[in-house]
Simulated scan of single mutants.
Amino acid sequence: MDRQVALRLKRQERLINEPALDFRAVISEAALARCAHQESIASEQFAHLLHMSKRPNVSIRVLPFEAGLHNSMTGSFVLLDFPPDTWSPAVYQEHAVGGHLSHDRALVSGLSSVFEDLRSRALAESASHKVISRYAQR
């Protein structure tokens, strides 16, 4: 657990240190609702999301409950894109006991389509900010 937290913190540094990476996320409202019930961490987590969402290189959008069932209900994934002539695009899929990194073009393409569908169904950034703020006040 400590190693996973350290790796996530290192990735977060790349969002604020120059040159900053672009980050686009769709967060299920269900994840926000679950976090809200963890009072010991909720306020800090929501404050962090709100703070980061103000950065020009960060886009955080909420997929509301009203969006219904979606193609990513089986688990989270991260799409990774790299500068030309370095590495090919990749996808990282997390699961309960670890994760899997793949450069498989079909998998990356399929999950890119899933991500674009999620973004099209998610709230706009300003509306997402309001939803996160509401959960933060609970």
Rank of each mutant, 00 (worst) to 15 (best):
M1V: 03
R3K: 12
V5D: 03
A6M: 11
R8E: 10
L9K: 06
L9D: 09
L9P: 01
K10P: 00
R11Q: 12
R11F: 13
E13S: 08
R14C: 03
L15N: 09
I16W: 11
A20H: 04
A20I: 03
A20N: 02
L21S: 14
L21V: 14
D22L: 11
R24W: 14
R24S: 15
R24I: 08
A25I: 06
A25V: 07
A25R: 07
A25Q: 07
A25L: 09
V26C: 09
E29V: 08
A30K: 12
A36P: 12
A36E: 14
E39L: 09
E39I: 13
S43Y: 09
E44V: 11
E44K: 07
Q45F: 09
Q45H: 07
Q45D: 03
F46E: 01
L49C: 11
L50R: 05
L50M: 07
M52C: 05
K54C: 10
R55V: 00
S59C: 12
I60A: 01
V62Q: 04
V62N: 01
L63P: 03
P64Q: 07
E66I: 01
G68R: 09
M73P: 05
S76K: 01
F77W: 06
F77T: 12
F77H: 03
V78I: 14
L79A: 04
D81W: 08
F82V: 10
F82I: 10
P83A: 15
D85P: 00
D85H: 13
P89A: 06
A90S: 13
E94Q: 06
H95E: 01
A96R: 11
V97S: 12
G99V: 05
L101H: 12
S102L: 03
R105H: 11
R105A: 12
S109D: 15
L111G: 00
V114I: 10
V114S: 07
V114C: 08
V114A: 09
D117Q: 12
D117H: 13
L118I: 01
R119G: 02
R119F: 12
R121S: 10
A122E: 01
S128N: 05
H129S: 09
H129N: 08
K130H: 13
K130R: 15
V131T: 11
I132E: 04
I132L: 06
S133D: 13
R134M: 09
Y135A: 05
A136Q: 14
R138K: 10
